[in-house]
Amino acid sequence: MVTAQRQESSQSGRFDIENVSVSYGSEKALQGVSFCIEPRRVTALIGPSGCGKSTLLRCFNRMNDAIDNVEVEGLIALNGEDINAKAVDAVSLRMYVGQVFQRPNPFPLSIYDNVAFGPRTQGVRKRDELDEIVIDSLKKAALYEEVKNSMKKHAFELSGGQQQRLCIARALATRPGVLLMDEPCSALDPISTGMIEETVQQLKEIMTIVMVTHNMQQAARISDTTAFLLRESIEEPAELIEICDTNTMFTQPSDIRTENYITGRFG
């Protein structure tokens, strides 16, 4: 079923999240989160450190499976289908829901092999087909012009910003319908950040983007919808305080806690 979705990936990429709670062992980190992520829009998750933004993001491609002791409750439906259902294979889910991490994490391989990694896992073997995917992905990630003559170069020779765009290209190569970004610019300089923001603006034409960010200007600049999460005290789990159109949130937040956070009164 997930395979079928991949083909119509440009069509959808909608998440419905209903009453989701996450606990680490006996400690509840996130409680009762419900909202929906519209297809082909940029949704920003904001909030102070430790409010469960990244934890929530990892629910969307079941990366929490890779961490011991994490339990996710509630319903997360992707295009109407429960992703935590037994029939859904986390491996194919992750091909449809790509992720870019906080720190650039290219594999110790050449630029080409990094991007071709996902398609090769999917079973693409033909050289010209791979070439096409690699070039297309690098172009979408706005890296192609810089590396087109050095595709065999080791990925570690690239700068931090280039490495991060390489990681975006790598995630795009599996033709995902959703791209999760976990503070993708926090380790980068302003120029690289600008390039990645521009890339995100172009990518939302073809896919859904969910981005965790600490930088409120960034959220205001690039996102369409913003969700604000907050953990009010150390004993309580974090909750979703407010989700709405980005403009509305930054001009007329409906919750006083959102206003306090946005105006920099805490966090």
Partner: peptide
């Protein structure tokens, strides 16, 4: 580094 493992998981590798 674990980041590499997570990068690989996120691409759908077992």
């Amino acid at each position: 580094p674990n980041e590499l493992r997570h990068g690989s998981f996120a691409l759908g590798n077992t």
